[in-house]
């Protein structure tokens, strides 16, 4: 489906990247829960959400979405417009609610018969070595998602397979959000060798008393305020698990938590 056709059927106004309206999206994802978007959203989708904050845009970007539609006439908040502009996502706003928006897109799709496309092709990755340190300050929520965004664009620059970048980006973002929600601050080390990408995140904070329990889908200690932001469905760590080739979680109560996430690079011919 062309984004432009969706815009027309939703009578949406375009807030960012009008130049990309000609692009196609392959699926629609309707949700206000950002962990859900990260867990189930397919690349090249369009997000329908009532959450107008920059977090929606960052989640959509991590999940490789092409467009975001804010529902019920919501205005973009924080740096949402700028983020969409910088990261090549069409940002639109419609007066419709989620139900009506879904219905119209279904009607549009039934008329058009969309063809799902192949995912991006694997690019060769060889002879790369990258090392970068980042710092996450957990008290400044407006900065949530910056490190993941940075990691993502660095990996893109050196030509890592987009499918793998997506896994790294999603894992980083969930881990980063956990620092904002559950810890104080963290150091992040990104290392890329020809064989693997490793992201090590070491936080200072309350730690996790029972890691095994924390890894379970649905387990959360998130507060109501955090849920209101669309986080706190207890999907973050399971989502990281699903997206990594190797994951180590170690934690000491009262001190902090360390996550080592490894992603294996596929080299041509191996």
């Amino acid at each position: 489906m062309k984004i432009e056709a969706i815009r027309d059927s939703l009578k949406a106004s375009v807030l960012a990247r009008e130049d990309l309206l000609g692009a196609e999206v392959e699926d629609i994802y309707a949700s206000d829960l950002m962990s859900d978007v990260l867990a189930f959203g397919l690349p090249n989708s369009l997000l329908l959400t009532g959450l107008a904050s920059q977090q929606s845009l960052i989640s959509a970007h991590m999940a490789e979405f092409k467009a975001v539609v804010l529902l019920r006439g919501k205005r973009a908040k924080d740096g949402a417009e700028r983020f969409a502009t910088e990261h090549s996502m069409v940002l639109m706003s419609t007066r419709l609610d989620m139900y009506d928006a879904c219905v119209r897109i279904h009607a549009l799709r039934d008329g058009n018969g969309v063809q799902p496309k192949e995912l991006g092709t694997t690019q060769a990755v060889d002879n790369i070595l990258l090392q970068q340190k980042f710092q996450i300050e957990g008290n400044d929520f407006s900065k949530a998602g910056y490190v993941s965004t940075e990691v993502k664009s660095m990996l893109k620059k050196i030509g890592v397979d987009p499918v793998l970048i997506r896994s790294v980006a999603i894992s980083c973002y969930e881990a980063e959000m956990n620092v904002f929600m559950h810890a104080l601050r963290a150091k992040v080390d990104l290392t890329v060798t020809p064989r693997l990408i490793e992201v090590m995140l070491t936080d200072e904070g309350k730690g996790i008393p029972d890691v095994e329990q924390a890894m379970q889908e649905g387990f959360t200690t998130a507060t109501d305020d955090q849920r209101a932001l669309g986080f706190g469905s207890g999907l973050g760590l399971p989502n990281i698990k699903r997206n990594t080739d190797e994951l180590q979680v170690t934690s000491e109560v009262g001190k902090g938590t360390t996550l080592v996430m490894r992603f294996f690079l596929q080299r041509p011919g191996s």
Partner: peptide, 29 residues
């Protein structure tokens, strides 16, 4: 009628009596 939202405060504010509420939120709240 139907109301879709995954945010509690949103449902509280906008869902109407007799609606079908569709969500991915499972918390007891």
């Amino acid at each position: 009628g139907v109301f879709i939202s995954d945010m509690m405060s949103d449902a509280m504010a906008n869902a109407k009596s007799g609606n079908l509420w569709i969500t991915v939120q499972t918390h007891k709240s």
